[in-house]
Structures are given as C-alpha cells and as structure tokens.
Design a protein around this nucleic acid. Structure first.
Ligand code: MN
Ligand code: MN
Ligand code: ZN
Ligand code: ZN
Lengths: 136, 136
DNA sequence: TTCAACTTTGTACCGGTTACAAAATTGAAA
DNA sequence: TTTCAATTTTGTAACCGGTACAAAGTTGAA
C-alpha cells in the first residue's frame, strides 16, 4: 500500500507531521468523521494541535483531490478518503454511516430534464442491520 | 384547495397569524427556502415578526408532519411543503433548487445489504437548463 | 548559517440555530 | 363580560461549526 507521505508528495503537499496524522486517520477509520471528530481523535497524540490546522488541512486535501467533503444529513461537513463510487446509509438509531456499493452511473454525464448532471449523491436513512437484531 | 387554517387545525396547531402566513408562503413559493429567507419575505408584512417565531414554527410544522426539512447541499436547513416523492437538483451556477419527478420507489420499504431503508434522498448537482443556454 | 516561504497556532469573529424568560395573546370557565 | 391559565410570540444571549487573520514556529535551499 502506498505510504501517506508518498500520497501527499504526489499531490504537491509538504508532509508535515499534522498532515500525515490527519490523512492516516482518514485512511484507517472510514467513519466519515467531522473536523471535530478528527481533532478529538488526534489531540492526545499531538497535544499542541489546533482546530484551525485540522480545518486548514481538510480544506487543502479536498482542494487537491485527496478527500471528498460530504453534506450527508446533518449540518456538518464530513470527510472521506474513499473515492470509489458508492452511496451512503445512515442508521437513525446508532447514527453510524455505512458505505453501500450501489452505483448510480446512469446519471453520470447525463442530461436530466435538460439539466446537466455533474454530481449525484444518494443518501439513505433507516435502521441498520445490527440495530435491527437488537430490536427483536 | 384546502385552506391554510383547515390544514393547521387538522394537525392540531392553533392558526395564529404568523403560522398562517408562514405556511401560506411555503405553499405558494416552492423554492425550498431557509428560515431566514422566510423571515425576510414576511417581515415587511408582519413588522414585529421575530426570527425565533419562524424557527419555532418551522420546527412545529416539521414535527407535526406538515413540512419536510431538507439537508440538501450547504449547511442550512431548507423547508418544503411538497411531499410528493421527488428528487432534488441544484444548479452550481445560479444556485436554484429544482424538484425532479424521478421516483426511487425501488428503495421503499426495502432491505439493502440487510439495512432497513426508511427514507431516501437523491441530490443531483450540475448546470441547469437556463444556465446552459446562457453559457453559449 | 541565513532567511524567505511555508505551516501551525490562538484568538476573534461570523452566521445559522437554540435556550430562555418576559410580554402579549387567546379562549374557555365563571 | 371578566378572569386567568395556557399558549404563542418576542428579544436577547448563548451555542456551535466554521473562517479570518496575524503572530509564532518550522523548514529547506542558497
Ligand atoms: Mn462514504
Ligand atoms: Mn423539493
Ligand atoms: Zn444502527
Ligand atoms: Zn442555473
């Protein structure tokens, strides 16, 4: 697997310690975290870490195409490293966000009612597998 | 067409002047407005109107099932009265939000990867019909 | 070793939203 | 019609995710 430092260099980003740790976190934990979740997860490891650095870094990564920024359901931006086409499901009970490998290619580069479609986001909501088990 | 006051009464909501005006606005202008847009549109008519009232009212209407609250793309909640199944398209140029009558029934009451789907939101993004014309 | 460019940090601020308590309004009982 | 508790509205302060900005720290090439 490609190293975090390699990935950063390929995208013309200097691999500072903070940037490496943040990207590492996003590659390891595919939980679609918010900026604050990332900050909380890393601040023990980097006690001087600033939230501004997390926000700056996520902005840089998104602009350079390493990350995707998602507006899923609530009013916070969530970030993900996984760029394979997929859709999202959020459990209304445990709030976990799942990736589902359903593709919606039929919208890609298409006109719908005369509008040119450049992005599509499919967000499902319900009760997840695990929470369904507990319910019974 | 059913009167606004009838609709409110059917949902056990006292038809105050503010509530009537707010619901009237949402039924007349299907633009998926934010709380602030509604406030701006009505404050000339009701000079004493408070933003808190708008927020309170939208919360009440949503809880009682008169309105849908949508997290479409940016970090603001948008409200709509239209509850016919449809999907959304936002123009990246003029920022208008369009309703598209595409149905995704195949998710309704379905299990996907073992998860029980209760809601689905399809959000498309691109350049709208009108803006495509201007572009050339 | 030097120094300009880059990166990180802390603080103040912003905009959408919520909490809360006071004021105004309502409507049903007396 | 009057009364008064319940409901609704209002204004203010606070909250929270995010951004602006300037100072401090770090880096790396000359
Ligand atoms: Mn995902
Ligand atoms: Mn709509
Ligand atoms: Zn769950
Ligand atoms: Zn447009």
């Amino acid at each position: 697997m490609k190293s975090i430092i390699e990935i950063l260099k390929e995208h013309d980003i200097a691999p500072s310690m903070q940037r490496v740790k943040i990207l590492e976190y996003l590659r390891n934990y595919k939980t679609h975290p918010t900026a604050d979740m990332i900050y909380q997860a890393l601040v023990d490891d980097i006690p001087t870490l600033s939230k501004t650095t997390v926000y700056n870094t996520l902005k840089t990564f998104t602009e350079k195409g390493i990350l995707l920024a998602l507006s899923l359901f609530e009013n916070e931006v969530r970030y993900e490293y996984n760029k394979d086409p997929h859709i999202h499901f959020k459990c209304m009970k445990c709030n976990k966000i799942y990736d589902l490998n359903h593709s919606f290619d039929h919208y890609n580069d298409n006109l719908v009612d005369g509008h040119k479609i450049l992005e599509h986001h499919v967000n499902l909501k319900g009760i997840c597998k695990d929470c369904l088990k507990v319910e019974n």
